Computed example of a mutant assay.
Amino acid sequence: MTATTLPLGNTDAALSRARPLAIANWLFGVAALIFVMVVVGGITRLTESGLSITEWKPVSGAIPPLTQAQWLHEFQLYQRIPEYQQINRGMTLAEFKNIFFWEYLHRLLGRVIGLAFALPLLWFWLRKAIPTGYGPRLLFLLFLGGVQGAIGWWMVASGLSERTDVSHVRLAVHLLTALFIFGAIVWTALDLRSPGAARRRFPTLGIWAVAVLALQLMFGAFVAGLDAGYAFNSWPLMGDQLYPTAAPWLDPLLRNFVDNPITVQFVHRWLAFGVLAAAILLARQVKRAGGRRESALVHALIGTQILLGIATLLTGVDLHVAVTHQAVAVLLLASFVLASHRLAVLRPA
Rank of each mutant, 00 (worst) to 15 (best):
T4C: 13
P7M: 10
L8I: 13
A18C: 10
A24W: 10
G29R: 09
V30E: 01
A31D: 02
V38I: 15
I43E: 06
E48W: 01
I53W: 03
E55S: 12
K57A: 14
P58Q: 06
I63L: 13
I63W: 06
P64W: 04
A69W: 00
H73S: 12
H73P: 00
L77T: 02
Q85H: 03
N88D: 12
M91E: 13
K97H: 08
N98Q: 15
F100C: 06
W102P: 07
W102E: 04
L105H: 04
L109A: 03
R111Q: 09
I113R: 04
A116K: 08
P120W: 04
P120D: 10
L121V: 06
L122P: 02
W125M: 14
I130D: 07
I130R: 10
L139T: 11
L141N: 07
L141W: 07
V147I: 15
V147L: 13
G149A: 08
A150G: 11
W153V: 05
W154H: 10
W154V: 02
M155F: 04
A157H: 14
S158R: 02
R163G: 03
D165N: 09
S167G: 02
H168V: 00
R170M: 11
R170A: 07
L171G: 12
L175N: 01
I181N: 00
A184H: 02
A189L: 10
L190I: 09
L192S: 10
R193V: 01
P195N: 09
P195Y: 10
A197Q: 12
R199G: 00
W208G: 04
L213C: 05
A214W: 11
F222R: 07
V223H: 06
A228Q: 08
A231F: 03
N233I: 08
L242D: 04
T245K: 12
L253Y: 11
L254D: 00
I262G: 08
H268R: 09
H268P: 07
W270C: 05
L271I: 11
L271R: 01
L276C: 05
V286D: 04
R288E: 11
R292G: 01
L297C: 07
H299I: 10
I302Q: 04
Q305R: 02
G309M: 03
A311R: 01
L313M: 07
L313G: 06
G316N: 04
H320T: 13
H325C: 11
H325M: 09
Q326R: 07
A329E: 06
L333S: 05
S335T: 08
A339S: 12
L346W: 04
P348W: 12
A349P: 15
